[in-house]
Nucleic acid binder design. Sequence first.
DNA 1: CCGGCAATAGTCAATCATAACTAATTATAA
DNA 2: TTATAATTAGTTATGATTGACTATTGCCGG
Lengths: 185, 185
Amino acid sequence: MKGGNDVIDERSLLLLGILMAQSAHGYQINDFIEKNLLYVTEIKKATAYVLLDRMALSGFVTVHTEQAGNRPPRKVYSITPEGIEQFQSLLRQNLEHPDSPIYKGDVGLMFLDHLPKDEVAHHLQQRLQRLQEQMNLFQKGLSHSHAAGIQLSLEHRLLHMQLEVDWLERIAAQLQSSTDEKTVQ
Amino acid sequence: MKGGNDVIDERSLLLLGILMAQSAHGYQINDFIEKNLLYVTEIKKATAYVLLDRMALSGFVTVHTEQAGNRPPRKVYSITPEGIEQFQSLLRQNLEHPDSPIYKGDVGLMFLDHLPKDEVAHHLQQRLQRLQEQMNLFQKGLSHSHAAGIQLSLEHRLLHMQLEVDWLERIAAQLQSSTDEKTVQ
DNA sequence: CCGGCAATAGTCAATCATAACTAATTATAA
DNA sequence: TTATAATTAGTTATGATTGACTATTGCCGG
């Protein structure tokens, strides 16, 4: 009977969460995600439509197609009472389970012995610089006019970014100095 | 002409990196990943085979099928000189580009206003507990007999885990006390 | 006033990823 | 000794994901 949907999919949670605020059509939802949730999710437009339509089949949202003028028709999604319950259930699960983020950079770290130390130091210096730029951008977009939850998630993200910067500074300096030793004979 | 493979795929880097140490057959590789790299990658067996065979087509590895007794035949993969270059190239890219890890938990955080504060506090308490258990396990598996790079990547991971624990403790306590205020009239 | 670029809105063919499967071999214990 | 489970080894059918595409409207400069 192909057991049900007890998987914690943060993307459905996200979509339902957006619909908790107000009904919206697909484009709105995807536009919002692209412009504001770059750091929160990697979901793509076509996937969002798939998930929304699937949630419609499950009765968590309703779709009604709206024609404005003679543009391409809009699919307007609204959350249902069952959808609200699903949202709360997913939210609870998301809150109580720690996630294990994957740091793709760790793969490189693992193999850093295969490159000369000074080259590694150089590359990590690069990484640091780019990261600092990213962080500046991130901080610029950081207004204080958000709901408590949004604020919290942004601060959380920032903390990890800052840790990463500090760590990179430390490690890069370490590698640098340890190659200097050799260089200085 | 469908531009080439300049995408930074940390999974290929990982596979090539493993083959840098010694040739191995598919099962060995996958077994190693499953048992040791739980926190580093999410690649699955079937995917690893796909990538390995694709890299064979690209000339980065060679496959030769080996028959031991009359068991299912083994596919033994070895890295080629071109593969070594590819490995170094991917490694450099991996080292110089910061990754933007996705914290799935941030989705839940964003919507925490939709639940009573004390309930949120409770769930986050749960999360904290589970995370601490995870961290204990992780630290147990943390021997000091690794190559410098492995060591570094493990420490990196641990730092972020520790930050997460500290952060959760702080936030959970904050929510707790702010609901206490109300409760205490 | 018209050519082209950006924004709006969604679909779909092609690729990607993996759960589930096959199948032999070797403990494990009954 | 003989089922039964666990390990070894890889393949495939299916479902998930998304890059590329269609199409209309609005806007701006020349």
